[in-house]
């Protein structure tokens, strides 16, 4: 009886040994049944090295096949629609998770951060300036090989103004205005974690607008939040820009210009104390000797009318 029991045990061991057979040993814990029988962490596979696999730790047979740690990456912003992209905007957030890693580290040249060095999921928050961030997932138990994903971080390269209204004008007065929407390029990333502003500037004017020469353009659109990305345009600033020439008294029909060069800046919404330069935009109103009026702003915003045209917009 005792001998039979020994043989039964040996038979069981042989069966188990045959199952492993020098091939992959299943270490996936089976949570999908009510009574799980397997062990260890989900989705990791550790087994013996095939002799021909040089990437296998302890290769040449007898070692373990250790897969790379997985990183699932999803941008928090849902526009642009490619949420798996690795090109992200300054301040942008990316949710990272792994099915086999338990540890995270980051190497960056722009101040990007992770909100946790362990566990899952974690969030990558891009820094304030153009740069890169390399995030490495690893496992403290060595069940996966460290794997690194690198992100390129873009800062706004342009402020574009796009006409959003008809022309505003008073009949027989040399004035012209329009509303424009403001977008931050490039449109391949999201800048919705930023604030935007136009800096102080000085009007340069002559002719019909001579009374406005030297006027200070206020720090306009102070700390305006930036919203979602629009393909083909960029991330849309939450306020519209009201571009209006104003008017002076005196001769209303003469060759005239009114120009203001406005530096634009962005800041992280989480730290609006530090502002970074984007570009300088130009707002320009012109009038020719026949009283034809034109107003433009960088990015293509433009309207036209003439002094004699009927009042519109107001």
């Amino acid at each position: 009886m005792r001998v039979r029991a020994i043989f039964l045990c040996l038979g069981l061991l042989v069966t188990l040994a045959s199952c492993s057979g020098g091939r992959d040993v299943p270490v996936v814990r089976d949570y999908t049944s009510a009574n799980p029988t397997h062990d260890v962490r989900p989705q990791s596979v550790v087994g013996r090295c095939p002799p021909y696999d040089p990437s296998c730790v302890g290769g040449g047979g007898g070692g373990e096949i250790i897969p790379p740690c997985s990183i699932t990456s999803q941008t928090v912003a849902i526009s642009p629609t490619d949420t798996s992209r690795t090109e992200i905007g300054v301040g942008e957030q990316v949710t990272l998770s792994s099915s086999n890693a338990d540890s995270w580290s980051i190497t960056t040249n722009d101040g990007s951060t992770l909100n946790s060095a362990s566990g899952s999921p974690v969030t990558l928050t891009a820094g304030a300036t153009y740069g890169t961030a390399s995030v490495t997932a690893s496992d403290t138990s060595g069940n996966c090989k460290p794997f690194t994903k690198t992100y390129t971080i873009d800062s706004p390269t342009a402020s574009s103004y796009v006409t959003a209204s008809g022309v505003y004008h008073h009949q027989n007065i040399a004035d012209i205005g329009m509303y424009s929407d403001v977008y931050l390029a490039p449109d391949t990333v999201s800048f919705q974690w930023l604030y935007y502003r136009e800096q102080q500037a000085t009007f340069s004017a002559n002719g019909s607008w001579i009374c406005e020469n030297g006027l200070g353009h206020e720090t306009a659109l102070t700390s305006v939040a930036v919203g979602s990305d629009y393909p083909g345009f960029g991330s849309k600033v939450d306020a519209q820009d009201w571009d209006f020439s104003g008017s002076c008294t005196g001769n209303q029909i003469q060759t005239s210009t009114e120009t203001v060069y406005i530096p634009t800046q962005y800041a992280l919404a989480s730290d609006s104390a530090i502002w970074y330069s984007i570009t300088t935009v130009t707002q320009s109103a012109t009038e020719d000797a026949s009283g034809n009026l034109n107003l433009t702003k960088t990015g293509g915003a433009s309207v036209s009318t003439s002094v004699s045209s009927a009042t519109s917009g107001f």
Partner: peptide, 21 residues
Amino acid sequence: RFSCPAPPRESNGIQLPACVR
């Protein structure tokens, strides 16, 4: 939608541009 306003036309007939000091 909202935007930085322009001052009202003044009694002297001058209308300043939007968002001046």
